[in-house]
Every structure is written in structure tokens, then in C-alpha cells.
Design a protein around this nucleic acid. Structure first.
Length: 196
DNA sequence: CGGGAGATGGGCT
DNA sequence: GCCCATCTCCCGA
């Protein structure tokens, strides 16, 4: 079954490529005033500190990306396309500037609340199968930027065990830089992985 | 049901 | 002023 024991802070002190794979199968939990929602991570992307122009940290520290240069295991959240948020987990040691984008979840708790937050979605499969969608469904916004992801009310738990041969990789989605690099990871055959 | 374009605003050159 | 780590609607088939 699903293990909700929070991961320790040191768990996140890995390079982004390693962490992106390690986070598959972990459970993201948010106890909000509206209620509790949770989902298993099924799709991630790594953004690296070196030779990665698509990484927000690639041009140095700014007000927006400052969290990426802080300690690992914090939430890096930013506003995109004028209407959506994206949720990342800060990887590696302080001042490195790496993160893992969470691209899709499999809902395991609070499905009704997710539906309420995502009025426009028609089906269960549409609730959390994309970075903007999962932020909406989980109630994630800029208020949670920088939050340590091993504390109530917003944290990552152990979740479920993943067989290594179930992890597949591909190029990252929605960017033009380094498309040849297989830095997107997902669980083979999982219905909640965003397609393409 | 698949492709394409519009929405929409902050960050950076 | 242009570029986005996106999503939804609307169209044609």
C-alpha cells in the first residue's frame, strides 16, 4: 500500500537526473483548508545546472529562481503562460541551481476536491496529467514557493516501490533547448502520464 | 478524435 | 518586444 511517511530532507540532496528518477512513485500530499489531496508521481523532468539553457537557473540567480539556489527539498513554483503554475522540487546542494519538474500525478486522495478545483476537466484522467493541471488540482500556487517538502501541510512521502524497468525516458516537453537530451522520465503504461 | 490557434502576463534581452 | 518547463476550445473529419 501507499506509505505516507515523509521523506527526510537529505533524500533530496541528489543531482537532478538521479532525483527525477527517484521521485517516480513518491506521493505528494497537500492538506489545505479546503481538504486533503494526494497523488503518486508518474512523470518528471530534470533541469540541470550545467549545459542546460532551458533551466531557469542557467543565467544565474534572480528574484524568481532564488529558491533553486537554496537547500534541496524545497518547492520551486513559478507562473507560466499568464494562467498556470508549474511545481518543481529543488535538487542537489545549496548554490547548485537544479530542480525536477513534476509533470503528472496519479490521484489517490481527494478526487472530489480535485474535480471541484478543475471545473473544466471532463474526465478522471484529465485531473492531474500535466504540470499546470496538477497544480490546479492540488491547490498549488505561489504561496507555497520555497516550502520545505518534508513538513505538514505540504510534503512528499515514500509512496510505492517502483520496478526499475518500468521507468522510461524521452526528450523534455514544451521547450526548444536540448530536445535531444532524454531528461524526461515516466512510468511505462501509466494512464496519467501526459501524452505526445 | 486529432490538429491548430488563442488566451494571457511575467521575466528577460 | 519576444519568449515561454501550458491548457482548452473549436474546428473538420
Amino acid at each position: 500500500m501507499i506509505d505516507y511517511e515523509p521523506l527526510p530532507e537529505k533524500y533530496f540532496d541528489k543531482d537532478a537526473l538521479t532525483l527525477a528518477q527517484a521521485l517516480l512513485g513518491r506521493v505528494l500530499v497537500h492538506h489545505s483548508p479546503e481538504g486533503t489531496t494526494a497523488g503518486i508521481i508518474v512523470e518528471t523532468e530534470a533541469y540541470l545546472s550545467k549545459n542546460d539553457p532551458a533551466c531557469h537557473a542557467s543565467r544565474g540567480k534572480t528574484k524568481r529562481n532564488a529558491v533553486m539556489f537554496g537547500p534541496p527539498g524545497r518547492a520551486y513554483i513559478y507562473f507560466i503562460y499568464g494562467m498556470y503554475y508549474c511545481f518543481n522540487v529543488v535538487a542537489n546542494a545549496q548554490e547548485i541551481g537544479e530542480a525536477v519538474l513534476i509533470r503528472a500525478l496519479e490521484p489517490v486522495e481527494g478526487q472530489e476536491l480535485m474535480r471541484k478545483r478543475r471545473k473544466k476537466s471532463r474526465s478522471f484522467l484529465d485531473l492531474t496529467n500535466g504540470p499546470g493541471k496538477l497544480c490546479m488540482a492540488m491547490g498549488i500556487d505561489l504561496q507555497l514557493n520555497g516550502f520545505p517538502l518534508f513538513k505538514f501541510p505540504f510534503y512528499l512521502g515514500k509512496g510505492i516501490d517502483i520496478e526499475l524497468d518500468m521507468i522510461k525516458s524521452s526528450g523534455r516537453i514544451g521547450i526548444n533547448q536540448a530536445q535531444d537530451k532524454p531528461w524526461r522520465f515516466f512510468l511505462q503504461g501509466n494512464q496519467f502520464v501526459s501524452r505526445r
